[in-house]
């Protein structure tokens, strides 16, 4: 069963990630009173990009983007997607926190070799934004790990299944709210879209990507969305007992994230960090204090 999940969960992440990419375009189009592209448009785009002859700036340019996508798949292996996580006993949530960084870091290294200032500005913005949302995010994660007394995602999910899901229980409701407030920043959608701002810095880190590179970067973007949302579902919404329920829960969270995306304009990176360090941090901090003092 575990072996099966090794293959199944990356495939599920890939499919759902791409579905989310297509759905987000469709969703945005409908909010803007357009028809929008077909749901499978990202597949067509990726196929097109995959067969285009692009340019390479060097070995690191290739390796970085491969590393980025591979590490995103590895993060998925730590995630119980309505079943058991294939890599459940290899470092737990702490390893996930670290592995989640490898995605942006791979893109950053690869983009660095492209020798393009647009890319560098994008990466600088990405890292600043990450520092912005990591403050509340770490508080949320620490509150959860302290509350349940474990660093394993699987055990957190199991503990929630015994009692109520975290977002519906008393001290952790603060963490849940804070997570919802930072979710758009973690997914990289508006108002926190400043990293890949197409109009200012020519889509930032992806400015030099064409062809297969862009295809891989697009898939990685889909997986990032998948990971951000599935972390929420697992850690705060009690996970699920089978993949279908898990997917439905993800869909609800996704709809929330993209409703925000459609409703807000883009923030400057300082404004974004200022926001992230104000309300979400405050709420997450209250949650953490409550967990540390009251406990379970």
């Amino acid at each position: 069963m575990r072996i099966l999940w090794f293959v199944l969960s990356p495939l599920m992440a890939l499919a759902v990630g791409l579905f989310f990419l297509g759905l987000s375009r469709r969703f945005m189009a409908r909010i803007q009173w357009r028809v929008g592209p077909p749901l499978y448009q990202p597949l067509i785009d990726i196929l097109r990009q995959f067969t285009q002859k692009s340019v390479s700036h060097g070995p690191l340019f290739d390796l970085g983007v491969v590393l980025s996508l591979a590490s995103s798949f590895i993060v998925v292996l730590f995630m119980p997607l309505g079943g058991t996580a294939p890599l459940s006993s290899s470092g737990g949530l702490l390893a996930v926190l670290y592995l989640m960084l490898l995605g942006p870091l791979g893109i950053a290294l690869s983009g660095g070799e492209a020798a393009n200032p647009n890319v560098s500005i994008g990466i600088s913005r990405k890292l600043i934004l990450a520092v912005g949302y990591e403050v509340p995010f770490l508080m949320i994660v620490l509150a959860l790990m302290t509350y349940y007394g474990t660093i394993s995602i699987g055990e957190i999910v199991a503990a929630q299944r015994e009692s109520a899901s975290a977002i519906a229980s008393f001290p952790l409701v603060f963490s849940g709210i804070a997570y919802l407030l930072i979710l758009p920043a973690m997914l990289g959608v508006r108002p926190f879209e400043v990293v890949g701002a197409a109009q200012e810095i020519s889509s930032g880190p992806a400015a030099e990507y064409g062809g297969p590179y862009l295809a891989l970067a697009t898939i990685q973007h889909g997986l990032t969305m998948f990971i951000g949302i599935s972390l929420f579902v697992n850690l705060l919404w009690g996970g699920a007992s089978n993949p279908v329920v898990f997917f439905l829960k993800m869909l609800v969270v996704f709809a929330f994230g993209f409703w925000v995306n459609a409703a807000f304009p883009r923030l400057r990176v300082e404004q974004a960090v200022r926001y992230l360090w104000r309300w979400p941090t405050l709420i997450a901090f209250v949650g953490l204090i409550l967990v540390a003092t009251i406990g379970r």
Partner: peptide, 12 residues
């Protein structure tokens, strides 16, 4: 995927 062409830093 399609093979890419190696270029230098001047082609950015």
């Amino acid at each position: 995927g399609a093979r890419s062409v190696s270029v230098g830093q001047a082609d950015s």
